[in-house]
Design a protein around this nucleic acid. Structure first.
Lengths: 149, 149
DNA sequence: TTGTATTTAATGTATATACATTCAAATCAA
DNA sequence: TTGATTTGAATGTATATACATTAAATACAA
């Protein structure tokens, strides 16, 4: 549906402004949908993202600051997020030998299993909530990459 | 920059998954940028949005639930947001005569002035943070509208 | 009418987030 | 080496958010 109808607004005068509102609104649509899939597993979308970052390095560990770097939301607190995952036994935390300020984080087998379980579900889910065909999705990716400059 | 480089990730296998991550990441870019323009005026992006909704109706009032309906983030609390704006004297709250459960909200002259002041600034700003030309922005709007189905 | 259900806004509450501060470890310059 | 600076992670704190509950007003059905 057109964004103007969804938020019951008169047509935007400025397409740039419309795009900003459209992005905010679409983001809200996305996270609302996403929470449906992650909530039953007691994961937040950002926790899921961190697990994926860790799997990308597995079996190598990765430091907290490096996780922060790669997170989608740079402002959220990697330290506390990792703590949450540790309580759920999805990650391990170990003091880094070379630099004792740093803390190495590794995904556990349990964490890997949960990702594995979610994998197909998430894949199908993503496809089902994004009402675009493949070439449109590719176009969207290009536009978003370009948008950020 | 390509999303894979920005979050230092290997290329996505699945363009749909990439699009989801790309949207989340781009949203973060947007709000980070936006806060720079709103913060000096002591407004959050969602407060700004509510003021714009109210201006759209002005001089007619609009109820709290109707604001909620049109907000970008349906989950956030219109009642408390309005309270914040009231403290700043940007809106007025008045019991609705026909239905005493409802509360009519109107934007004040002060609120209108602040929007006026911000208008040009926001317009320029939007254009400057969205590194796309007009036809690309239009394309993006179409894709986002279609995406949500 | 009268009792029940629904709607509206406000409030309570737990958690998340943004942002600042702290503390220890490492780096660097004098 | 020593003192100052920087870095990495954790923690403190205020605010925001998600979600549930409440309280009052209205609608609706028996």
């Amino acid at each position: 549906m057109k964004i103007e109808e969804e938020i019951r607004q008169k047509p935007f005068k400025d397409v740039y402004n419309k795009a900003v509102v459209n992005l905010l609104y679409t983001h809200n649509y996305l996270v609302t949908q996403q929470s449906k899939i992650f909530k039953p597993h007691d994961l937040s979308p950002e926790q899921y993202n961190v697990l994926r970052i860790l799997r990308g390095q597995h079996p190598e560990p990765i430091t907290v600051s490096s996780i922060q770097d790669r997170m989608l939301n740079k402002m959220s607190n990697a330290s506390r997020l990792v703590e949450k995952l540790k309580i759920k036994k999805m990650v391990e935390r170990r003091e880094c030998a070379e630099d004792r300020r740093q803390v190495d984080i590794t995904i556990t087998d349990k964490g890997l299993e949960i990702l594995e379980q979610l994998e197909d579900e998430v894949k199908k889910f993503n496809k089902s909530i994004l009402h675009l065909n493949k070439s449109e999705v590719e176009q969207l990716n290009e536009l978003l990459d370009k948008l950020r400059g």
